[in-house]
């Protein structure tokens, strides 16, 4: 069985090579782009910035998925968080000093994400509405709302775009890293050591047992959805202040929240491991930007990430099965 587990990884590698071969860059181009990323400190630092929204989404999703709460609302929450930050910095009319502006942008993004997450949680807990679909619909609703703000009330200049946030409000990579580490550590402790974490595990593994033996399932869904939304919301602030800076009209949403979903599963639902996996994904993104100059579609990165996650999950699954008597 060891061999067939390794086969899963090999199949993944073959898949990546095939996909790369479908693009103008080819496998060699892909690997050389990756090599470039991993040998240039400035690109490695940039990767931390891009990891911001992905990791922030993933750490919260990891907890939610542990509870069996299969939301995919992180995408909309990231976007809403970014909108909230943009409002604080650019449109609230508050002339805050930079540190305070950044802090309140983070806070408001957190609250915005939390509330949006809670909508999904409330629908699930009280009405039993399937969270995967409801959160997905909310993603598109937020996207439409973002486009409305960008094209309407927030529009400046000839193009459909918002103001740009001032350089004083940009986040350097150590700040992003600190934010992510703080969230991941808190959530890791929450999962492993706290009463809430224990309850979340039980709810995910056996919902019926959890409810029968005195765990407040409804309240737990609310907690988890709020927590998940909050971290993704922070991710939106990190996206805006880390690298995005200006919001433009978009036909599809940025996708960092969706990548968070892939990351959470790849990290086997551990918040701390999600951090590492996000960083890895983020280096792929940077490589993807390099490859764009070879006219490789950016979403090729998404395919490669998907293949990696699938291979890892298959590897773990086959390994687990072979350990059983």
């Amino acid at each position: 069985m060891k061999a067939s587990a390794a086969l899963a990884l090999l199949a993944g590698l073959v898949g990546i090579v095939v996909v790369a071969a479908m693009t103008p860059a080819g496998p060699a181009g892909l690997f050389s782009a990756l090599a470039t990323v991993y040998t240039r400190p400035d690109l490695l630092a940039t990767a931390v910035l891009y990891a911001g929204p992905i990791a922030a989404s993933a750490v919260g999703l990891a907890v939610a998925y542990r509870a069996g709460f299969l939301t995919i609302g992180s995408e909309g929450q990231v976007l809403l968080g970014a909108l909230a930050s943009m409002w604080v910095i650019g449109y609230s009319g508050l002339r805050l000093p930079p540190v305070l502006a950044v802090a309140s942008a983070l806070l408001l993004a957190l609250v915005a994400g939390l509330l949006l997450g809670l909508v999904v949680g409330v629908l699930r807990a009280w009405l039993g509405v399937n969270e995967t679909l409801s959160s997905l619909m909310l993603n598109y609703i937020v996207l439409a709302y973002a486009n409305y703000l960008i094209a309407g009330p927030w529009r400046v200049g000839a193009f459909t775009e918002t103001k740009s946030i001032p350089p004083s409000c940009s986040l350097a990579w150590p700040v992003v890293l600190a934010c992510l580490l703080a969230m991941a550590v808190v959530l890791e402790v929450l999962v492993r050591r706290t009463r809430l974490g224990l309850a979340v595990e039980a709810l995910g593994a056996a919902p019926r047992a959890a409810e029968t033996y005195s765990l407040p399932s409804r309240r737990l869904y609310l907690y988890v959805s709020a927590l998940q939304g909050a971290t993704a919301g922070v991710g939106g602030a990190l996206m805006l202040m880390g690298f995005q800076r200006v919001l433009t009209a978009m036909s599809v949403s940025p996708g960092y929240g969706y990548m968070g979903i892939l990351v959470a599963w790849m990290a086997l639902l551990s918040p701390l491991a999600s951090l590492l996996a996000s960083y890895f994904f983020s280096t792929l993104i940077v490589a993807g930007y390099i490859l764009q100059s070879y006219r490789v579609p950016f979403n090729t990165v998404l395919v490669i990430q998907s293949i990696i996650v699938l291979a890892v999950l298959a590897y773990v699954m086959i390994g687990r099965r072979s350990r059983r008597p």
Partner: peptide
């Protein structure tokens, strides 16, 4: 559920290619 979601991302990326 996980594999279904992965299919979404894979499909979107492959479609772009």
């Amino acid at each position: 559920i996980v594999v279904g979601l992965i299919l979404v991302f894979m499909g979107k990326g492959l479609a772009d290619i």
